[in-house]
Computed example of a mutant assay.
Amino acid sequence: MKRSLTALLLLFALLLTGCSNGTGTDSKTEAPAEVTITKETLSDTLRWFNAAYAIITTRNGGDINLIGGYGTKNLLEVQMIKSGLKESWEVTDKTTADDTLNWLLEEGGHNAELLEEYKENSLSEYTREELIEVLSVSSYTDNDRAYYLGLYDAVANYSDNAILAWDLSRAMQLSAWYYLAGYYTYEEAMDKSLAIAKSLQKAYGSWDEMADSYLYGYQYWSGDDMSDETSESFARYQIYQELVKQTDSPYSIDWNYELQKDWP
């Protein structure tokens, strides 16, 4: 199964032109039961949730003050989200939604794959300087060097949680999207998000650490070079830096905020 996030803006364009792999827009799509959440009524716990996946929400042109980055009244947005889940995650119902979260949360997701690759390549036997020397031969491309150094640095900095934030951040976004798509109830989605958020707090000590691990994960998955200013990894790094600097930054809420269930 391909475990990635298709750019929502592209999906939006495809849906408008009726070219989303021939599926078109389903006129029978119904929005899930509405839970009215605005920027003014967004609780601190929900604000924390949204901050955990604010990078991808911003990259996709969503609103970091809305659950999942989108409202639930717009049927076209609901169809867009359902199409994105199907195309990028092969999620089409509650069963496949549960299976995908299980892969991310219980089976280790991409974090487990990276740790296995780190082990297979015996990267623990090198210092960083030695690894750079090994990778300096002409048979390695710049992206190869970035890839293996990314693996090395992720484990060096975060040990077994190397790119866990990449998996958990997406799991939180997926939980919200499952609600928007109608696969989860609002309570189910938020309960799942609460458990994931608490796992993130245990794994990392700050928003910066979480974002760092997330970006290592994106670079690992995409195979590009975060130091390349034309890369998607660099674009996401820039988004994080810009979000941090905002007056109303989503990361202004304390990383160690005591998350609590404040929904029905």
Rank of each mutant, 00 (worst) to 15 (best):
T185S: 15
N60L: 04
T41F: 10
A189H: 05
I239F: 02
I239S: 00
G150A: 07
A112I: 10
A112Y: 06
Y220G: 00
T41M: 03
L131S: 05
L16W: 15
A154G: 09
G18S: 07
E107L: 10
E116I: 11
V244M: 10
E125N: 11
A165H: 05
Y126R: 09
Y158M: 02
A7F: 12
M80C: 05
R145I: 13
V35P: 04
W103Q: 13
Q173G: 13
N157V: 00
A97Y: 08
T230R: 13
M210A: 11
E232W: 09
V91C: 01
V244N: 00
S233Q: 02
S124Y: 11
D153N: 14
R3T: 11
T58Y: 01
V244F: 11
G62E: 05
A54K: 00
D224H: 08
Y251A: 02
A51R: 01
D167Y: 11
C19R: 12
D248P: 04
L168Y: 15
T100Q: 09
T17V: 10
Q238W: 10
S193M: 14
G68S: 05
D262G: 10
M190E: 14
E90H: 12
H110F: 15
Q246E: 15
K94E: 11
A31W: 00
K73G: 13
P250C: 04
Q79F: 00
S175T: 09
S20M: 03
S169K: 00
A33E: 15
G182L: 06
Y184K: 04
K198D: 08
W177H: 12
W103H: 09
R170V: 04
K39F: 11
A211S: 10
E106I: 14
I253P: 03
D44G: 02
L215W: 00
D228P: 07
E40F: 02
Y152W: 12
T38I: 08
Q173I: 08
V134Y: 15
P264K: 10
A97W: 03
P264M: 03
G108T: 08
Y183W: 15
T23M: 09
E87V: 10
G150L: 02
F12H: 14
T230V: 06
D228A: 06
G108F: 08
L85R: 01
D26L: 07
Y147F: 15
L75C: 01
W255T: 10
A33K: 14
M190N: 09
L75Q: 08
R145Q: 13
L164G: 00
E77Y: 12
D26P: 06
A165G: 07
W263D: 03
T185L: 09
L10Q: 12
Y179S: 04
E117S: 14
L15N: 11
S124C: 05
S169L: 00
Y257P: 02
L42M: 11
W207E: 01
T6M: 05
Q260L: 04
D167Q: 05
L151Q: 12
D144G: 01
L180C: 06
G223Q: 09
D191T: 12
D224G: 03
S88Q: 02
Y214T: 04
E30Q: 15
S138H: 10
L76C: 02
A235P: 03
I37D: 05
L5Y: 13
S20Q: 09
G71A: 05
N111M: 08
A176W: 01
